[in-house]
Each structure stands twice: as C-alpha cells, then as structure tokens.
Design a protein around this nucleic acid. Structure first.
Length: 578
RNA sequence: GCCCCGGUAGCUCAGUUGGAUAGAGCAGCGGCCUUCUAAGCCGCGGGUCGGGGGUUCAAUUCCUCCCCGGGGCGCCA
C-alpha cells in the first residue's frame, strides 16, 4: 500500500521537476504516518525539500504536486496542502478491504519479509562463563538476543544463535579452587574464612585458622551452590582432593559441567535455544589462538615489552595498546576473543552481532581493530549493548551483589512471575537504557496492571468472541469473505491503521536492532482493542446486523493476527483463554 | 582526568532516523456504566523535552560547551 503510494508520488515529483526544466534527481522525500488523524493517512514532505532548489515557496510546489498526483489510479481519495508545505494524503476506503484480506491470507507470515534474502547472520549472546547461575543481566541479554534473532528470521535472514564462553582462563581455575576448598572444609581438613574477611584488606587474608589451612581463594566464588558442588566433588574425586593441582583441576571440570547443565536448563526455561556453543578451550586445542598470534606478529601488529606481548592498537587508531600475552606466558582473554571472531568470518557469516553488557563496551573496538588487522571485514561486526537490570519492590530497589552472591537469579525470577512476564519485562525497554524491573507490577496477575497480561488477554479476547460467535451459530469470515465496508467508527479505523503498521514495525525493529518496538506495538494494539471490546454500550462485535457483525469479526481476526504474530516474535505464548 | 549510556507529565517510559499542537500506561480529578471472561467506559488537568550556544524553512532528534545519575578506564573476564 505504502509502496504504491511512494511510487505514485515519485512520478508526481518527477513531473513537477520536468515542468520546471529540472532534470536532476528526485530527492529522497519522506512518506510518514502523521500523528494526527486530520493530517491524513500519509504525509509527504517533498515540496519542502524542493523549495530551495526551485526557488519557490513550498506550498506552491505542493499545489502542483497534488495536481500531478491526482487520485493515483484510485488509490488516493483526496490530498491537502497543510502547514509549511506538507502534502497530506487520504487513501480511498478500499484499502481496508485489501488490508484485512492480506492479514487473513498471510496469517502467521503477516509482518514478515524477505528483506534479508537468506543472508547469514550470527547473533552471539548470553555467553556467560559457567561460574554460577545466570543473573538478571544475562536474562535480559538472553531475551534481547533471542527476540532480535526472531526478528531477523522474520525478515528473511538465516540466523545462527551462538553462545561463547571462556573456560580456559583464571576465572575457571578460581572456580575449581573454590569448590576444592569447600570440599576440604566440609571434611574438616581446611578452615573456612569468615565472611568479614572478604571485606578486609587483601594483605590480611589468613593462611591458617586454628591450625587448619585456609584454602578458599580471596577472590573465590562465595555462592551457596559451591557447597553443593563440593559435596559432589567429595563423592567423585575424594582421592585427589588433597592434591592442589589434581584436585583443583578435577573440581573445575566437575563445576563447569554441573553449572553448564544448570545454565542450559535456565535457558530452556526462558525458551531460548542456541544453535552453537563455542568455547575458548577448543580454540586453543585447534591451534586457532596460536595462529592469530603468529599472523599478528607477521603483519607487525604486535611487539614485546616488559616480558609481555602487546597488540599495537594505537597504530590502529585506538586509545592504548593492549596485552595479548601476559609476562606469565598466559594469554589475556583478548587473544582467544580475536581467534573466535576470526572464526566467525571464516564460517561465512555476512553479519555478526555481539550482544554484550555495558561493562564490555570498551573492549569491543579492540576486537574489531584486532580482527581488522587480520584482514577480516570488521565493519560487519555490530555491537548491541545493553545496560543493567535493577529490581524494584514497593518503590525500593532490591539490593544485589554479585560478589557476595546475594543476587536474584533468572531461575528465581521466572519461578516467581513466569516465563511470559519475565520475557516481556526484559524486552520492553530499549537495550541501551537501564531496565527497572518492577516486581509489584510483574507479580500482579491483573491484566489491566501487568502489560504482559494486557497483551495476552487482548489476544484471548479475540478467541472469546469467536467462541461466542460459534455458540450463536455466526460464521467467522475468511480472507475471501471478509468485508471492511461496515467498519467506519473512528476507533475501528484506528485499529485498522494500527494493524496496517505492523510490517513496518517489524522491519524497523529488525533493522535498527531495537526489539522493544515490538513490545510497545503490542501494547498499543491491546490498548485499542481492550477498550473497544469492553465498550459494549456503543458497539458490539456480535449484533443483529449480520453484515456489520461479519465486518467486525473480520476486524477481530485481523487484530488477533497482529497480536499473535507480535507475541510470537517476543517469544510469549498467545493463550486462547485466560 | 578520559570514554560510553541515560536525563521527556507526579511515577515508569515511547517518540517512526530533522517535521505540523511532544505521546502511552499507571497515579490524580470529574461524569457515566453493570460486562462478546475478570470494574469497566468517556472526558479533563498536567511539560522551560536537564541547561546555554550553534547548524536550517523546520531541532526532543544533528554539532558544541556545561550540570546530574549509572557504567567503564588491569599483564581480570
């Protein structure tokens, strides 16, 4: 619909230019949905853009543009010049007929496009290291990445969802040591450092308490789940626990396995499914990390200083140089990260999107510069950054501390509010802003109060109406029989306009990597539909008037169509009754 | 000190890539109503878009300088 009008306007502008002996190009004018209904269905700014070029007032140009446009082969009912020189355009009523038919015909595909043309996109997200349960930050990132992936799929891209984790470095070693220490504490062969010691100075860290050695690392993992893992370690690796190296290693492997199992279960609860899991260790074993270092050395992008190997990032236009291999001989995380990103390109992705928390944002340019130096098209990597999540209850912020492991986990929150509410809340704000997760609202099952239920209930209501219709023996219309002519009330036109907007909303959300638009859109539809259904005094869907009833049932199905598709993109269920 | 993100109605936030009189949901006020599933429906009030300067037909949107809040600035990940 919009495309046709766009074409008609293009020719109209061409005509106006030709008449003025201007052979230049038609400017990229905007065709937008006005905020106000009395500004028409579409508004075009072409006349204003031409004002300077033609040396005439924009309103005069708009006159000629309107004349050239005419009725655009029956598409346009009328047009008006308004404001500084806008051309406001009203489409003929026949468009609603076409819209309803399209929505009913396409069903679950309404709003989808072939924009991506099968190009391959990788979305890397969550990527939490298996050192403990997923936090709300991971949860937000999970939903963000997953909904973005769904949007890209709906736009015709071939998407790979990928999870990458570091299991080769210090972090995992500390995890193993934490488990081993707890196991030996349980056996009475080591002393547990008292909690307040973690607050004290590093130098005060005890080596021995009451004759027992303190094995728990100063920066160890304090969460309660470590004790559970320790029990498992005692049962399975009791024989090697006393050996620091062997025991620590066995505990690390055991912890990674168990924790990763838990993470997968959590992802399952969020309804997030990855196609590929990658990890740092594999990159080492396949020699990919070593290869990167070698290639960087050959191309003169690294140098040695202070016993370490540095990436010459300043030569690539960045703030400072970065260490790739520490003087201890151990690589920093940046080196395997470069290897991993080079692999992404080797695997043939046209586009790579890294979903990362705000704490990683500074690192991103170094990864891009590094793989760029390796000859990869780094401009194809995108960063989708997200800020942190805070919990609010009763207007007060719920205190969380990762260090003390006193944080609410994804599992706990889902157990509390359910998957659908969890997902909706995590996606409803734009990613780069802070997300305030209001528990009072999220825990409410009142459909009017909780936006996730507002949307789902709006969908359920379309089924409620259909059930009612079936009871009364009223047939539901289909794509062929649907009739829009009876839909004339302002609130009905508003709903139809909203339904018509859906494909543009999806396209924009996908292109701009802003999934929250879909959540807002769903709320808007529900915000129109719920009052429409509820206001029985002015109108009812099911009435004595058979033709009117049929038209309104068509509207019901169209609204259901966009709600169901929006919910699917958000990864929420679309219940038929609640 | 430097970098990134935010600052829009009492609160939580949108704002279609620079457009017309800046919106939604809650909260507040007034009037109706008794449900195609759950108290709903209609209307009203409410704003120096953090502040100054600039760019142009047009700035909440782009540039610049300040203010406030959050995050980051390791041979940690």
């Amino acid at each position: 619909m919009k495309e046709k009008l766009q074409d008609a306007l293009f020719s109209a502008v061409r005509q106006v230019l030709d008449a003025a002996d201007d052979a230049g190009e038609v400017p990229a004018f905007a065709l937008e949905l006005p905020k106000r209904a009395d500004h028409g269905d579409f508004a075009c700014n072409a006349a204003m853009l031409l004002a300077k070029r033609l040396g005439e007032p924009p309103r005069a140009i708009a006159e000629r543009l309107a004349a050239a446009l005419g009725d655009a082969a029956g598409l346009v009912e009328r047009s008006e010049i308004a404001g500084p020189g806008f051309l406001n355009i009203w489409l003929s009523a026949a468009r609603w007929q076409a819209l309803m038919r399209t929505v009913l015909e396409l069903g679950p595909r309404y709003g989808h496009s072939k924009q991506g043309d099968g190009r391959r996109v990788q979305v890397e997200f969550v990527s939490a290291n298996p050192t403990g349960p997923l936090t709300l930050g991971h949860g937000r990132q999970g939903v963000l990445g997953d909904v973005l992936a769904r949007l890209l799929e709906a736009s015709g891209f071939e998407v790979t969802r990928e999870y990458y984790f570091n299991n080769g470095g210090r972090q995992m070693r500390v995890l193993g040591e934490s488990v081993r220490a707890r196991a030996l504490e349980q056996l009475g062969r080591a002393a547990a450092p008292p909690p307040e010691m973690f607050e004290a100075d590093e130098s005060d860290w005890p080596t021995e308490i009451d004759g027992l050695p303190v094995l728990f690392p100063r920066d160890g993992y304090q969460g309660g789940y470590i004790a559970v893992l320790a029990e498992e370690a005692r049962a399975r690796h009791g024989d090697v626990l006393d050996d620091a190296a062997l025991g620590g290693d066995a505990c690390r492997v055991l912890a990674q396995e168990h924790i990763f199992e838990d993470i997968r279960a959590t992802l399952e609860r969020m309804d997030i499914h990855f196609d590929v899991y990658s990890n740092e260790m594999d990159l080492y074993e396949e020699g990919k990390v070593e290869a990167v270092l070698q290639d960087l050395r050959e191309t003169g992008n690294v140098y040695d200083a202070d016993g370490a190997v540095w990436l010459r990032a300043t030569a690539l236009g960045l703030e400072r140089d970065r260490v790739l291999v520490k003087s201890s001989g151990e690589p920093t995380y940046l080196l395997p990260d470069l290897a991993y990103h080079r692999e992404k390109f080797r695997r043939g992705f046209d586009r790579v999107i890294d979903v990362q928390g705000a704490d990683h944002i500074e690192q991103f340019p170094y990864v891009c510069a590094g793989v760029g130096a390796l000859g990869c098209p780094a401009e194809r990597i995108e960063l989708l950054m997200n800020q942190f999540v805070t919990l609010t209850r009763g207007g007060e912020q719920v205190k969380q501390s990762t260090r003390k492991a006193t944080y609410v986990t994804v599992d706990e929150l889902i157990a509390d509010v359910g998957r659908d509410v969890f997902r909706f809340f995590m996606i409803q704000r734009k990613a780069e802003g802070h997300l305030d997760f209001d528990l009072d609202v999220a825990e409410s099952t009142d459909w009017k109060k909780n936006p996730a239920y507002t949307v789902q209930y709006a969908h359920a209501r379309t089924h409620g109406i259909e059930r009612q219709a079936a009871e009364q023996g009223v047939p539901m219309p289909n794509a062929q029989s649907v009739e829009a002519a009876e839909l004339v009330l302002p609130e009905e036109i508003e709903l139809l306009k909203k339904v018509a907007e859906f494909p543009a909303v999806v396209a924009r959300a996908a292109e701009s990597r802003e999934p929250h638009h879909v959540a807002y859109y769903a709320r808007e539809v529900a915000g129109l539909w719920n009052p429409y259904v509820q206001d029985r005094k002015r109108h009812r869907v099911l009435s004595e008037d058979a033709s009117l009833t049929s038209g309104r049932l068509g509207l019901t199905l169209a609204v259901r169509g966009v709600l169901a598709n929006a919910l699917a993109l958000l990864g929420l269920s679309a219940p038929e009754r609640m």
